[in-house]
Simulated assay, not measured.
Amino acid sequence: MERYPGDDSPLVRPYLLTGGRSRPARTDLELITLVVAVSEEIREAVGPEQAEIVRLCQEPCSVAEVSALLNLPLMVVKVLLSDLIDRGHLIHRPPPPTTAVPSRQLLQAVLDGIRRL
């Protein structure tokens, strides 16, 4: 496997993990969509990344969290999650549609938090 100079982690091309796909089959996977595993283990042959996703999702986890915990690009994770949902290994709950405008107090708290970074 290829490696970056000074990097101990292997370089795995995203198209290898997704079977060449760059978009998930599902269009309802947003950053804050929660996914949870249906069972503790998968009884069919899957890649190590998909097995790790099922392990991580024993408790509800957002799409963004899965991406961060696996250190994989968001689109790659969406493709893998989409496959696992379609195979019945995961279930998901898209966030409810929001039409309300956030309060000024909430926006100020977010801005204050960003400034502290």
Rank of each mutant, 00 (worst) to 15 (best):
A25R: 13
A51S: 13
G6D: 13
Q50G: 02
L70R: 14
A100K: 10
S9V: 14
G20C: 02
G6Y: 14
E40D: 13
Q50N: 05
V79I: 08
Y4P: 00
Q58L: 11
L111K: 11
C61D: 04
E52M: 11
G19L: 06
N71G: 14
D83Y: 02
P94R: 15
V38Y: 03
L69F: 15
L84S: 02
S67Y: 07
P5E: 13
V54T: 05
L84P: 00
R23I: 06
T18F: 01
E49N: 13
E65T: 15
R13P: 00
A64T: 05
V35W: 09
V76C: 05
G6P: 02
A37C: 05
A109G: 01
V12E: 02
V101W: 06
D7P: 00
E44F: 10
S103Y: 04
I32C: 04
L34M: 11
P73G: 12
R26P: 00
Q50D: 11
E41Y: 10
V12Y: 02
C57I: 04
A45T: 15
G20D: 04
G88H: 05
H92T: 08
M75W: 15
A37H: 06
T98R: 11
I114W: 11
C57W: 02
M1N: 06
I42H: 04
V63M: 13
L17M: 10
N71L: 14
R26H: 02
R93N: 08
L81V: 11
I114C: 08
E40I: 03
R43G: 10
P95D: 12
A68E: 12
D83K: 05
A25V: 09
P5K: 13
L117F: 05
P5L: 12
I91L: 10
D112L: 09
I32D: 08
G19I: 11
P73V: 08
P94D: 10
P10F: 12
R104P: 00
I85G: 02
P94W: 03
S39Q: 11
S82D: 03
A109V: 09
I85F: 05
Y15V: 06
R93M: 08
A25P: 00
R26M: 05
Q105A: 12
I42W: 03
Q108R: 15
E2W: 07
E40M: 03
L107D: 11
R13N: 07
E59I: 01
N71T: 15
